[in-house]
Amino acid sequence: MGAKYFGKLTLILFLISAVVAALLGAVNAITESRIIAAKREKTVSAMKVVMPEASSFEEFGYKGKDPLVAEIYLAKGSSGSIGYVVKVTPTGFGGAIDMVVGVSSAGKVTGVSIISMSETPGLGTNALKDSFREQFVGKSGTQAVTKDGGKINAITGATVTSRAVSKGVTSALEAVAALS
């Protein structure tokens, strides 16, 4: 059990790791571009949903202090900028809700789309339904559910989720208002 033995152990483990690493590198080379493309397509398609007239999106640095706002994109149509798309992450019943909010140059909501959430299936996940999300279209200012004195009809049995989405929309509107 001398240095030679340990040298052998090290060598074998090194060889196995090296072969695995090489294979992983090969697989990564094949898949990398596709994965990046798939991810970009997902974000862009979500942004297209909330701002259908836009043809391209440009990243726009967010310098505000609202922790709910993750990113802001400048939406460009055929004749220059037509508004912003804000990515916000309010906290719902089961953790963060990733959603994008489209805001027109006039400061009104053009659409709300949820990218991912871990809300209770059958209750909170009803926030994905058009009937709930479309309530926000055309709104500006602070958004709240009717229970809190606002105008948004909460999803039955999922007040917490409804509140979180309203809060996200409010943050997005404020972030855009602070830009101009």
Partner: peptide, 13 residues
Amino acid sequence: GFVTMVDLLIQAF
């Protein structure tokens, strides 16, 4: 190694 490969392949395809 195999898990990561499968993970990458699933993400891509």
